[in-house]
């Protein structure tokens, strides 16, 4: 988003920007999601399972 409402009060600003567009325009939110999701679902879930391999009797 190039403009904020207070500095550029033109016609486009009158329209509310949809939430999903805001999300996709925020690279740091995307970065957060793109790192956390695989870290939790792939790495952490996997490591937890690997620590739970039982010892051979």
């Amino acid at each position: 988003m190039a403009k904020s409402a207070k500095s550029a009060p033109d016609a486009a600003q009158a329209v509310r920007i949809p939430v999903m567009q805001k999300v996709l325009d925020n690279p740091f939110l995307l970065l957060f999601l793109g790192v956390v999701i695989p870290t939790v679902l792939y790495i952490m879930w996997g490591l937890i399972e690997l620590t739970q391999i039982p010892l051979a009797k």
């Binding site: 996709l24 995307l30 999601l33 793109g34 999701i37 695989p38 679902l41 792939y42 879930w45 996997g46 399972e49 690997l50 391999i53």
Partner: peptide, 25 residues
């Protein structure tokens, strides 16, 4: 966006015949 969220999970492609990981994972 779907890439950002899910593409990295496919790292599991290399661990499909390893001991110790569940079928769910």
């Amino acid at each position: 966006f779907l890439y950002i969220l899910f593409l990295q999970l496919a790292s599991a492609h290399h661990l499909l015949v390893e001991p110790g990981l569940s079928a769910e994972w």
